[in-house]
């Protein structure tokens, strides 16, 4: 508990840095946006605070979504970008943008979530067909399935000149977060709290149908709940800030190395570290080539794949 408190302070400190940093670039853009001199308070409220909040919300809920997927599949390498979930959400968003561009953003998010759910269900179906000789085959199937779904999305995006939007959805970037354009992330955050309350049941469901039923729980309902949470979280992130690779994979794995596997104990840590990692990556992206910004998706791509590789090589005794 003490350590958790300490971690909370660390996150708050990071959030403070995130609020203060990049002053000139932000005030520059706020100048352009408001076309007249404005007080710092307003800049803070309109753009800086929303951004920091968005980072914390997205980072924590995405990391928790990864953990839920790992619990349900009993595989440490599954997360939204290694199960076709993220790509399906982008495809759904593309579909609704093409077919019904006037739908409000919440409707778009729901369509994206429905696609994400369908894509994840397809992933689980395919897994049943594959001879599971090693746990590594699971993320392999997911990444390739994501590639196939991504190809479909690419095809239509290319055809209808929406490549730029598609890139924005698949590559996380918080630089355009403003008040009124990130609030959807609160939905994901609320779902994350819900998942925390159901943590024990999710753990049990991960042990398998027989095990769960034996304890008098409705297996299908729990799995469905978990998948809906994951799909909604993924969709909110894709719609508002864009995907971040491997975040939901690395954070739960690192946490399990640090505090062990009890879901209830690990979950706050996962949320905390997810937020922390995203804050750090965003800060790095803002300072490394100051005053220009490097999107967090690119930074996370480097950090995420490098850490994933380390987990693959070092953690094999543990995970394989």
């Amino acid at each position: 508990m003490k350590r958790l408190l300490l971690a909370t302070f660390a996150i708050l400190a990071l959030a403070l840095i995130s609020l203060l940093i990049g002053a000139s670039s932000v005030s520059l853009s706020s100048l352009l946006l408001f076309r007249e001199e404005q007080g710092t308070a307003q800049v803070l409220l309109a753009s800086r605070l929303p951004r920091t909040l968005a980072l914390i919300l997205a980072g924590s809920s995405l990391a928790v979504a990864g953990m839920i997927m790992q619990l349900l599949t009993q595989n440490r390498y599954v997360e939204p970008t290694t199960a076709g979930t993220a790509e399906s959400a982008s495809l759904g968003l593309l579909a609704v943008t093409l077919l019904a561009p006037d739908v409000p953003v919440i409707g778009k998010m729901l369509v994206a979530a429905a696609f994400a759910l369908a894509g994840t269900a397809l992933f689980l179906r395919i897994l049943k067909l594959v001879p599971l000789r090693s746990p590594l085959i699971v993320p392999l199937v997911g990444i390739v399935l994501g590639g196939i779904i991504g190809a479909v999305a690419n095809f239509f995006a290319y055809r209808f000149n929406l490549m730029q939007s598609l890139n924005a959805w698949t590559n996380g970037d918080f630089s355009s977060v403003l008040r009124g354009r990130y609030e959807l992330l609160w939905v994901g955050f609320a779902l994350m709290i819900l998942a925390y309350l159901a943590a024990d049941r999710l753990t049990l469901a991960g042990m398998g149908r027989d095990f769960t039923t034996n304890l008098g729980l409705k297996y299908r309902r729990i799995v469905a709940f978990g998948l809906v949470v994951v799909s909604m979280v993924t969709a909110t992130i894709v719609v508002s800030v864009g995907m971040m690779y491997f975040l939901g994979l690395i954070v739960p794995n690192v946490v399990s190395l640090l505090v062990g596997d009890s879901t209830r104990r690990a979950l706050p840590w996962v949320a905390m570290m997810g937020a922390g990692l995203v804050l750090v990556c965003d800060i790095v992206g803002r300072v490394v080539y100051y005053p220009y910004e490097i999107p967090i998706g690119t930074i996370m791509g480097i950090v995420g794949s490098a850490l994933f590789l380390i987990l693959l090589f070092k953690g094999r005794g543990r995970f394989a």
């Binding site: 392999l140 080539y289 480097i302 693959l312």
Partner: peptide, 27 residues
């Protein structure tokens, strides 16, 4: 080394290389 490990490592290496490249392209 298992084949699945190799393939997965390869794919993730690919992603790492591409991210690094796009990082440099930004700068």
């Amino acid at each position: 080394r298992s084949l699945h490990l190799l393939v997965l490592v390869g794919i993730v290496f690919g992603l790492l290389f591409r991210s690094l490249a796009s990082f440099m392209q930004r700068i």
